[in-house]
């Protein structure tokens, strides 16, 4: 039996303990807090909500150790990251124009049938661009892994054995939020997903984004920039078919039906799900069994409460 859960942000409305109680899980737990970067392992807040002991897997510290002790690997890793950044920059260049076409055609008032054709084509172009970008990211990651086989690489393998030992004694793996790329890269570097056996995975905010199929970055009103959501990475794929959106009420104009509809259609067939404070979603063996305060962004631009199947 596998349990996977996604939660909303935990800082102001912690929902971890009630969730564990509801689904009958008890510690000890392992935790990944690499997204907190230099604050990794500061589990005081988490400990208040966890019934048993929590062991931080220290993926951030371990990665720093790998980089410091293996400069050759570090250089290869840096090159990969540089290439990913460059790919992201180029993708954004195309994305700006592709999205502009979609938005302009939405406002177009010509012959209904002709306009509709163009709108569909513009949306297809946007979806194609996203998929193509995601494919290229996966290709680059696969080629890096094939070339360097990081999980079996000297120092990484040492750390990985320790991580496997720690995970072996824990029925629960908690994945906290924070910097989504740093978190995801550390999880990938040590092949944590491949070490899992029967552990229940409970992830929140960026943690939830990391365990989905793809990572979509979003904010409708950033202080700088255009605010166009972008595909940024392939996720670990431990939960399929959803795009988790932490802090959705804060980051997205959920009352703007046009924007919500566009967001939703862009990522179909995946469901774009809000993960605000207090929200939770639980799957058992791939079947959604429990939902609390999660909304699906519909094709028509509405928010529909998600219910277990």
């Amino acid at each position: 039996m596998t349990i996977r859960a996604m939660l909303g942000p935990q800082r102001d409305t912690p929902s971890l303990a009630p969730l564990l109680e509801r689904i009958g899980l008890a510690g000890p737990a392992c935790a990944v807090t690499a997204g907190w970067q230099e604050r990794e392992g500061e589990l005081q807040d988490l400990d208040q909500h966890m019934p048993g002991k929590t062991i931080d897997l220290e993926l951030y510290r371990r990665a720093e150790d790998v980089f410091a002790r293996d400069p050759v690997f570090h250089e290869a890793y840096r090159e990969r990251q540089q290439r990913l950044r460059e790919m992201q920059r180029l993708y954004r260049r195309r994305l700006d124009h592709t999205m502009a076409a979609v938005r302009e055609l939405e406002l177009e008032t010509g012959s209904a049938d002709l306009v509709q054709n163009e709108r569909r084509a513009a949306m297809r172009a946007l979806r194609t661009l996203d998929r193509q970008h995601l494919r290229r990211i996966r290709g680059l990651l696969d080629s890096f892994n094939a070339r360097l086989d990081p999980v079996n690489h000297g120092i990484i393998a040492e750390h990985r054995r320790e991580i496997a030992g720690q995970l072996g004694g824990c029925p629960i793996l908690l994945i906290a939020g924070g910097h989504v790329e740093i978190l995801l890269n550390r999880l990938r570097l040590f092949g944590v997903a491949e070490l899992l056996e029967e552990q229940a995975i409970i992830a929140w905010s960026a943690g939830a984004m990391a365990i989905a199929d793809q990572v979509v970055l979003f904010h409708d009103d950033p202080a700088q920039g255009s605010g166009i959501a972008e595909v940024a990475d392939a996720g670990l794929g431990l939960v399929h078919g959803v795009v988790p959106l932490p802090h959705a009420s804060h980051r997205l104009r959920l009352g703007d039906e046009r924007r919500v509809a566009l967001f939703s259609r862009r990522f179909l067939p995946a469901r774009c799900l809000t993960l605000d404070p207090g929200a939770s979603l639980v799957w058992r063996d791939g079947q959604m069994i429990s939902v609390n305060s999660v909304f699906n962004m519909t094709r028509r631009g509405r928010l529909r409460p998600v219910t277990p199947v």
């Binding site: 910097h179 905010s205 802090h247």
Partner: peptide
């Protein structure tokens, strides 16, 4: 200050989801 500071020193808004 928001316009000026966030342009001179862009924050990690896009990447961090706590």
């Amino acid at each position: 200050l928001r316009d000026g500071l966030s342009w001179l020193f862009p924050g990690p808004l896009w990447m961090i989801y706590e």
